[in-house]
C-alpha cells in the first residue's frame, strides 16, 4: 500500500497538472498582494485570507480531480491489471492510490503555504500557530471531499458526474448551519417542504467545522470552540466510511 502511495505521488509530481497548480498558485499569491495593496490598513488580513483560501481551492481541485479520474483511467487503460496480477489486495490498491493523492495534495499545499508565509512575513505579519490549524482544517476538508469523490467516481463510473456531485456537496457542506437553521425555523409550517433539506443536512459533511481560517482572529467571546480532537476524528471517520465503501465497490468490480 505504501509503495502504491509513493508511486502515485511520484507520478503526480511529474504530472503537468501539479506543475501548473504551483505556477497558478504563484500567480494567485501575486494577485492577493495586489488586492492587499487596495485594502491599505487591512493589507495583511487580505493577504492572509486570499492566500489561505486559494491554497485550499488549489489543493481541492488537484485532489478531487485525481480522486475522480485515477481509478477510472487505470481501469480504462488496463494498467490496473499490472498491479492486481501481483499479490496486492484490491482494498489496498484503492487505499494506496488515495494515500498517494493526499500526499500530493498535502505536498502542494505545504509548498504553497511556504510561499504564502514568506510573503506574509515580509509584510510584517505576526506569526500565530493558528495558521497551521487553519491549514490543517483546509487539508481535512480536501481529504473528506476527495474520499467522497473517489466513491462517487467508482459508483457512477463517470468522471463528470463525480466531479459535479462532489462540488455540489462541497458547497452544501459549507451551508450546513444555515440549512439546519432554515429547517428548524420553517420546519413547523412547511414540514413537507423542509423534509428533504433536513434529510440532506444529516448526510453531507459539515465542512464549516474545518473552516478555521474564518476564525483566525475572532475574539474569544465570539468564537465557537470545537475541541480539536473532535473535528479531526470527524474527518477521519467520514473519510473512512467512504474509503471503505469505495474498497468494497472496487472489490465487486469485474474487469
Amino acid at each position: 500500500m505504501i509503495v502504491l502511495a509513493l508511486n502515485h505521488w511520484q507520478e503526480n509530481l511529474r504530472n503537468r497538472f501539479f506543475i501548473l497548480a504551483l505556477v497558478f498558485s504563484g500567480a494567485v499569491l501575486y494577485l492577493s498582494m495586489l488586492m492587499g495593496l487596495l485594502a491599505t490598513d487591512q493589507e495583511v488580513r487580505v493577504l492572509l485570507d486570499f492566500g489561505l483560501s486559494f491554497i485550499e481551492l488549489l489543493g481541492l481541485a488537484g485532489a478531487v480531480y485525481a480522486a475522480s479520474t485515477v481509478l477510472l483511467r487505470e481501469m480504462e487503460t488496463k494498467t490496473v491489471y499490472m498491479v492486481l496480477t501481483r499479490p496486492v489486495r484490491r482494498s489496498h490498491y484503492v487505499l494506496g492510490r488515495f494515500a498517494g493523492i493526499m500526499l500530493s495534495a498535502g505536498a502542494a499545499m505545504l509548498i504553497m503555504s511556504a510561499a504564502h508565509l514568506m510573503i506574509l512575513m515580509l509584510k510584517g505579519w505576526a506569526w500565530t500557530p493558528l495558521y497551521l490549524w487553519a491549514l490543517l482544517g483546509a487539508f481535512l476538508k480536501v481529504l473528506v471531499t476527495a474520499s467522497l469523490a473517489l466513491f462517487l467516481a467508482l459508483f457512477s463510473t463517470s468522471v463528470l458526474s463525480s466531479l459535479t456531485i462532489t462540488m455540489v456537496l462541497w458547497s452544501l457542506g459549507h451551508f450546513l448551519p444555515e440549512i439546519r437553521l432554515m429547517a428548524r425555523r420553517y420546519g413547523h409550517d412547511s414540514s413537507l417542504l423542509m423534509a428533504p433539506l433536513n434529510a440532506i443536512s444529516w448526510v453531507i459533511p459539515d465542512l464549516q467545522l474545518f473552516n478555521l481560517r474564518d476564525r483566525l482572529d475572532v475574539p474569544a467571546h465570539l468564537a465557537v470552540s470545537v475541541p480539536v480532537g473532535s473535528w479531526i476524528l470527524y474527518a477521519a471517520a467520514y473519510c473512512a466510511v467512504w474509503l471503505t465503501l469505495s474498497a468494497l465497490l472496487f472489490r465487486r468490480k469485474e474487469f
Binding site: 488586492m35 487596495l38 485594502a39 491599505t40 487591512q42 488580513r45 487580505v46 485570507d49 486570499f50 483560501s53 481551492l57 476538508k141 462541497w170 458547497s171 457542506g173 459549507h174 451551508f175 465542512l207 464549516q208 473552516n211 481560517r213 474564518d214 483566525l216
Partner: peptide
C-alpha cells in the same frame, strides 16, 4: 464565496470595495 466556505474573503472584498 459563501458556497465555497469563504466568508472572510467575502468580507475582505467588501472592505476593499468600501475603501475604494
Amino acid at each position: 464565496l459563501f458556497g465555497v466556505g469563504m466568508r472572510r474573503l467575502a468580507s475582505d472584498l467588501g472592505i476593499i470595495r468600501m475603501l475604494l
